[in-house]
């Protein structure tokens, strides 16, 4: 598919700026053992929270949309997965 002239896809980091967050100081998701977390999440995570630096899989929780996809695709021992506490995290308005 080609894009409409003048219409450019928005990069994910800019797209996430449209969504409101109240980011907690503590991460609600943490990689415990990256052998139990598939690298494919760099493609599939809807907020691109997963990135690889060299061989290492990194996760940044700030843009998390709390969908649960990584929990489904990971081994239970791969991730510590919780919802954010105190009402923090994503604050949907128009969805």
């Amino acid at each position: 598919m080609s894009e409409e002239k003048g219409l450019k896809p928005i990069k994910i980091e800019d797209l996430l700026q449209r969504t409101v967050y109240d980011v907690d100081e503590d991460p609600h998701i943490e990689i415990i053992d990256e052998r139990g977390v598939p690298k494919e999440l760099t493609m599939l995570c809807p907020c691109s929270c997963y990135t690889t630096v060299g061989e290492k899989l990194l996760y940044s929780y700030e843009g998390c949309l709390e969908c649960g996809l990584c929990r489904v695709l990971s081994e239970p021992w791969g991730l510590r997965w919780e919802y954010p506490k105190s009402g923090r995290g994503v604050q949907y308005r128009f969805t």
């Binding site: 967050y21 980011v23 308005r93 128009f94």
Partner: peptide
């Protein structure tokens, strides 16, 4: 929530509508 306040480059104003407070 200042993270959610965006700047409208067309009008030069802050877009604060619908921005929740914290």
């Amino acid at each position: 929530n200042t993270q959610a306040v965006r700047f409208d480059p067309k009008t030069g104003t802050l877009i604060r509508a619908g921005v929740p407070s914290i």
